[in-house]
């Protein structure tokens, strides 16, 4: 049973926890897919510039230590708003 994948044929990042940046926010969540309406994340947490305490970097460091504080079950982010995306594990170096 080890290594059995129930969802073959998906995007390479499917199931991977990613950091997605927009002009005004930073989302961390489990990548699902790119749909015609945008990038779909599951169990996502969000840092909003000017709203969330601290800096984006501090938010990421806390997320690396304690995990994703998910506030949204499913989040669709229009592709045009995406400034960048990387795996959360890459942030740790």
């Amino acid at each position: 049973m080890s290594g059995h994948v129930f969802h073959p044929g998906h995007h390479d990042l499917h199931g991977i926890t990613v950091v997605l940046e927009t002009a005004t926010a930073l989302w961390v969540g489990r990548f699902d897919s790119v749909t015609p309406k945008g990038v779909l994340l599951h169990d996502a947490g969000c840092y909003e510039d000017g709203v969330t305490a601290g800096t984006r970097e501090e938010y990421l460091q806390k997320t690396l230590k304690f995990g994703v504080r998910a506030t949204t079950k499913n989040k669709l982010i229009p592709e045009g708003e995406v400034r960048g995306m990387r795996q959360l594990a890459e942030v740790a170096g």
């Binding site: 991977i16 926890t17 489990r30 169990d43 690396l64 995990g67 994703v68 998910a70 795996q87 594990a89």
Partner: peptide
Amino acid sequence: EFQPSSPSIALLRDGEVVHFVHRHQIEG
């Protein structure tokens, strides 16, 4: 304070979490 994710692995000593492996540390 450790947020839920699955799979994940926690090591507790006398009831306190002393090591945690999050899902994002397992992926890939």
